[in-house]
Design a protein around this nucleic acid. Structure first.
Length: 824
RNA sequence: GCGGGUGUGGCGGAAUUGGCAGACGCGCCAGACUUAGGAUCUGGUACUUCGGUGUGCAGGUUCGACCCCUGUCACCCGCACCA
């Protein structure tokens, strides 16, 4: 084996061999425990970036590890291949989206294979392929039949640049998540999924996910935004019911005005034909012209206008003025709010500005009657100015007043969610067409299952007109009504790509089934995903939608699992010079370049070694070289080890028969197995797993340098070290394994084990502390008792000097660690 | 403002959860082998006035604190006029 480490030859050879052997193709196996390992599938943008390499390298370590541990590991890969960039490429370069996308998939598949990741390519899927989106459409029909897919006119987020609507979740700081354009509000007919029906379950079931990061669960919790309160109906003088939502019904005696969102229908109704009509219209227009970002900013100066009408507070019977303002959102609650300036800071600011009455109804204990200088919002204190409720504590009043208004029929306790229904229609071409036709006689109809998929037409034009290119197809619009057989028109919208990616993990279980979306027994065998890995940027969107759709499919009886991902690992970003790699910053390091120069094993090793998976990783060219040097050292180490006389015929190691450096090397081997095993499986700390391997390599090298090597010890070390390397650097590990004389791939080998006997030490070094200060280090028998340790410490030369003139007050001995003598 | 997180050498990061702070690697310094080295190998590398001092800062608990508690500062991420 006295050759150079030729990574290029080694990596190419083994990738080819593994593919030919079908090493990673799996089927359900009743003999083995299943393990479904999944990394978030990529959008086929054209080429892989370092973030991909990191994501898949992390996944591959776990896949290979669990496979060596004897589990039946499914590790699939596919493409989230619908989406806007393909259409933009069509507009810019005149390439058909399908062609562009498929070419990118080919290229990236090749790159993935070059990374040597252990994918079962037989299960590859692409969401843009008719064999896949047929079933996305079918799932739509299932939701439609359940009443979970519906169409309504709504004020929606519109991106003028992408010329399409966006889901709430795709609006980031008032801007389009994709292109950064400021999002507008438009009233449009759109399709929705009724995710709000699942709000409570999506919230409750977060506790079923102990394997998820708290951060992600908290983000979902906040996004769902559950709040308990009372919906209380005020009545206008004209007799209109104007319900408000409040979490603080205890403050109802302090209501001094009412606010309607500018879009609230009562605003127009109550001002129609009055002197207020024009000024209010002007005000509403001014507010609606604000960008979404300004409108929802807490920095926005609160402004409002009296609309000339009054409402009656049902509890007090008091007449209060109705205002409209820029700080009440029509989308949340009822779009109407009761104004309690004494106990809500926003209301306080507003009332102070416009001279509205401020009526205190809760006071802290020992209140001296002083005026408020800001709203008193503590959940404490006692009721005042609140009729029969005076004197009750605030928490008590909250319940009592809620009871009271419910008894009177003025209101009821409700739960309100921030979560909105999921807007899934897009006015775009490159997505799964919504399988609906409109018949002039029979109305809106689902496309029957046997007519799926509704194929995307190819006779379309791609121009940035702001209209869906689907509308330019002469053929697409024409359909037949499934009820009456008459001519009908097709729905022109396509589905949000997040619909496609909300069930792809189910399709992998039964990837090419022509008859169903997925076979139930196959899905029940593999699901749920045991370990899911991806970027934290999907914490809300993708992960919530996937949970929702899984629950729907569960309720439909299509799969047992009602949560898709048991464990979630959110990997950090790959940075260069402190910033995320991006073309505009010019700090991109291409995986291809690194692989060409050092090989895949080096690239993977660096990425896994430089930081724990959850943290951001700073790219460092010099450190990559360090990893390359390490692999060269490993290579030379094995070459030397194989030259140790007798190594090929060596018998098993007898721990008891070893001593000195042989015993230490033997222990090092077992300690390393233990550390690496725990670091991978328990702690997800691949960086420390690798450093443990490095320490063993260093010790092993020194052992070969300095000692008359014991063939059995060396044989054991190489036989255990190679498999430890396999999950991280699969190619070099395989090459070494074969050099060691094995006939079968290292990736089919068993994960090494360790013995407690081998870990044991005869003597250990402990420290001797006086008052917590280290005074000496002692080599002591490993089995020494506390008494013996203390005796040993006290017999040290110098002990008298360290304790001179003082009396021992406490003696602490921790076997294996230290002795601490406290003196005074 | 609310929620989550992070602060350790020149740098990335260890310290398996209260017991030797700085493992491992990068970088740097010195040396060896070399016609040569940006190859390889060897040694050193927190600070220090050599007493000690050190894990953002100030306290506390403890025989003992990077780790637990209280307060505080800085930075990062998410949400944000949600009634």
């Amino acid at each position: 084996m006295e050759r150079k480490y030729d990574f290029s030859a080694i990596e190419g050879k083994w990738q080819k061999s593994w593919e030919e052997q079908g090493l990673y193709n799996v089927q359900p196996d009743p003999e083995k425990e299943k393990f479904y390992l999944l990394e978030m599938f990529p959008y086929p943008s054209g080429k892989l970036h370092m973030g991909h390499v990191r994501n898949y390298s992390i996944g591959d370590v776990l896949a290979r590890y669990y496979s060596m541990k004897g589990k039946n590991v499914m590790h699939p890969m596919g493409w989230d291949s619908f989406g806007l960039p393909a259409e933009n490429a069509a507009i810019k370069n005149g390439v058909e989206p399908a062609k562009w996308t498929l070419a990118n998939m080919d290229n990236m598949r090749q790159q993935l294979k070059t990374l040597g990741i252990s994918y079962d390519w037989n299960r590859e899927e692409g969401t843009c392929l008719p064999e896949y989106y047929k079933w996305t459409q079918w799932i739509f029909t299932q939701l439609y039949k359940k009443g979970l897919a519906y169409k309504k006119k709504a004020a929606v987020n519109w991106c003028p640049s992408c010329a399409t609507v966006l889901a709430n979740e795709q609006v980031v700081e008032g801007k389009c998540e994709r292109c950064g354009e400021v999002v507008e509000k438009r009233d449009l007919e759109q399709w929705f999924f009724r995710i709000t029906d699942y709000a409570q379950r999506l919230l409750d079931d977060l506790v079923k996910l102990p394997g998820w990061p708290d951060k992600v669960k908290t983000m979902q919790e906040n996004w769902i935004g559950r709040s308990e309160g009372v919906q209380l109906t005020f009545t206008t003088e004209a007799g209109d019911a104007a319900p408000v939502f409040t979490t603080r019904v205890d403050t109802v005696f302090g209501v001094t005005y009412m606010v309607l969102a500018p879009e609230h229908p009562l605003v127009a109704k109550l001002t129609a034909g009055t002197e207020y009509e024009q000024p209010v219209k002007d005000f509403v227009k001014k507010v609606s012209q604000l960008s979404f970002i300004d409108r929802t900013s807490s920095e926005l100066e609160k402004e409002g206008m009296f609309i000339g009408a009054y409402a009656i507070n049902p509890v007090t019977g008091k007449k209060i003025p109705i205002w409209t303002t820029n700080y009440v959102l029509y989308e949340y609650g009822t779009g109407a709010v009761m104004g309690v300036p004494a106990h809500d800071q926003r209301d306080f600011e507003f009332a102070s500005k416009y001279g509205l009455e401020i009526q205190r109804v809760i006071a802290p204990e020992g209140w001296d009657g002083s005026e408020l200088t800001e709203a008193w919002t503590e959940h404490a204190g006692y009721m005042v100015n609140s009729g029969d409720f005076d004197g009750l504590s605030m928490p008590e009043a909250l319940e009592k007043i809620a009871d009271f208004v419910e008894e009177k029929g003025w209101g009821k306790r409700i739960v309100n969610f921030r979560l909105r229904d999921w807007l899934i229609s897009r006015q775009r071409y490159w997505g799964a067409p919504i399988p609906i036709v409109y018949c002039p006689k029979c109305g809106e109809q689902l496309v029957p299952d046997d007519q799926l998929p509704v194929l995307l037409p190819t006779d379309v034009e791609f121009k940035p007109t702001g209209e869906s290119p689907l509308k330019t197809s002469p053929s697409f619009a024409h359909a037949t009504c499934p009820i009456c057989g008459g001519p009908a028109t097709r729905e022109m919208d396509t589905m949000d790509t997040f619909v496609c990616s909300s069930w792809y993990f189910l399709r992998y279980c039964d990837a090419h089934d022509p008859n169903e979306a997925f076979n139930k027994s196959l899905a029940d065998y593999w699901m749920p995903v045991d370990q899911y890995i991806g970027g934290v940027e999907h914490a809300i969107l993708h992960l919530m939608y996937a949970r929702f759709l899984t629950k729907v499919l569960h309720d439909l009886g299509l799969v047992e699992a009602d949560e898709p991902f048991t464990n979630l690992l959110t990997q950090g970003m790959v940075l260069k010079d402190g910033a995320k790699m991006s073309k505009s910053l010019g700090n991109v390091v291409s995986p291809d370049t690194i692989i060409e120069k050092y090989g895949v094993d080096t690239a993977r090793l660096f990425i896994l070694f430089a930081a724990p998976p959850e943290r951001d990783l700073e790219w460092n060219d010099a450190a990559v070289e360090g990893c390359y040097r390490f692999l060269n050292r490993v290579w030379r180490l094995f070459s030397r080890a194989l030259e140790v006389p007798g190594i090929r015929e060596a018998a098993a190691v007898d721990t008891a028969a070893l001593s000195g450096a042989d015993r230490d090397m033997h222990r090092m081997t077992h300690v390393t197995v233990k550390r690496v095993t725990e670091d991978i499986a328990v702690r997800f700390q691949f960086n420390t797993a690798i450093s443990a391997i490095m320490e063993m390599v260093n010790a092993f090298t020194e052992y070969l340098d300095k000692e008359q090597a014991n063939a059995a010890v060396v044989a054991e070390a190489v036989e255990k070290l190679a498999p430890l390397l396999a999950p991280f650097v699969p190619h070099i590990a395989e090459e070494i394994w074969m050099e060691l004389g094995h006939g079968e791939s290292i990736h089919l080998a068993q994960w090494p084990d360790y013995s407690e006997a081998a870990l044991a030490k005869d003597s250990v070094e402990i420290v001797l502390q006086i008052n917590g200060k280290i005074k000496a280090r002692l080599e002591v028998p490993a089995q020494a008792s506390q008494e013996e340790l203390i005796a040993l410490a006290e017999s040290q030369p110098g002990f008298a000097e360290w304790t001179a003139g003082k009396t021992p007050v406490k003696k602490i001995a921790i076997p294996g660690k230290l002795v601490n003598i406290v003196v005074k």
